[in-house]
Nucleic acid binder design. Sequence first.
DNA 1: TTCATCGTTCGGTCCATGGCGAACCATTTC
DNA 2: GAAATGGTTCGCCATGGACCGAACGATGAA
Lengths: 223, 223
Amino acid sequence: MNAGPDLTTLAGAVGDATRIRMLELLMEGRALVAKELAFGTGVSPATATAHLQRLEQARLVRSTRQGRNKVFRLATPTVARMVEALMTVAVRSPRASATPEPLRAARYCYDHLAGRLGMGITDALLRAGHLSLRRRAFALTPSGEAWFQDFGIDLEPVREQRRHFAHRCLDWSERRDHLAGALGAALASHVFSLGWVERQPDSRGLIVTPGGQRGLKRHFGVL
Amino acid sequence: MNAGPDLTTLAGAVGDATRIRMLELLMEGRALVAKELAFGTGVSPATATAHLQRLEQARLVRSTRQGRNKVFRLATPTVARMVEALMTVAVRSPRASATPEPLRAARYCYDHLAGRLGMGITDALLRAGHLSLRRRAFALTPSGEAWFQDFGIDLEPVREQRRHFAHRCLDWSERRDHLAGALGAALASHVFSLGWVERQPDSRGLIVTPGGQRGLKRHFGVL
DNA sequence: TTCATCGTTCGGTCCATGGCGAACCATTTC
DNA sequence: GAAATGGTTCGCCATGGACCGAACGATGAA
């Protein structure tokens, strides 16, 4: 049996901006492939490999190979508990909002929209019958197909991507699913290029612009 | 409105061998002056100052001046919980001997009882129906309320404290929950003032006195 | 007042390590 | 087979930050 890391080794493994963000990304409960983690932390694949090796050596993450992908997940629920404890201290705000307001409202979840914004959009699409729920994913209905094309998103290149099309992603601040996968990423990117949302510096937080508020209300009837 | 540090700042503050060792030292529940922390981590006073400033800036420790001394303590019970969670992951070694016996048996966890002692007491209270399990905390039942009053603990001032009342704290040596929070601290303090347990010098370890063994057996039927 | 002690500031050294690009395997797809 | 894609290895650079000694306030004791 392998011994766990001692406290200083563990602290060293946790105590890096990129690595803690990787753990944060993995807190969503989903397994992520190395590339997603690299992208989500804004780091090159080479650097990501080094970080992931270190995290794995500290027994904080586990990896399994799936074809030419390598998928990572938190090693144990205990690790998740630890990361949660870190988050709790990090956002130790006196008010009940365990998550800072900007992040609750709208934020990136590595390449798609999360927070209330992502959830609201997803809900609207579900209510309108453009999406339907599957066990582990969403399905795009015919009306949804038309809607996305109409919205200005060409579905051809989205379908061609070698990744899940419309994944369900459990939000850790809202505790509900939102749209992820290639479709979620395409939606986020489009909404972004429309100027509806803007990046907050040094944060996954997003800002909904005035024009974005109008557009979101018109197209989704929410927010 | 004191916003906590963001997660990366926090991780950076935690992720250093000397600083995590300082936090570990402060887990004994005692306040330590800067020099003790410097000596305890084997580092010069100048270096210790830098580390302590960083810890304080991340709101992990609090300091007060007493004469020409500066005494440090963990900022909040939440921080203690976080350090405990780190320890839990760190010693996740299959070799139980990794934890010295005295610490396994009875020890302080910041301000409440841990180890087998803390766990045994918690179990006894649960079995007797004085406590019940909630998702993230314990709840004090009516019979428990009577029991605590009868035991000599006035619950009024405990309830007035601005901290969680009866938190669940995962023990890093026993891998099970024990009673923490304001109620756990009050219980520890009371058991301490009864002379049932005594501090081991320079350690988080506690010694159960002969009188304490009788008392614990009578009141909790354990140990 | 004078001395001792504690902590801080400052200047400087030095090493660990996070970061990248490029070349290199491995695997799947066509 | 060839091409595309994901991941790893390697060499290298740059920066951060951990550390110390020495000089310097501040506080309490003699």
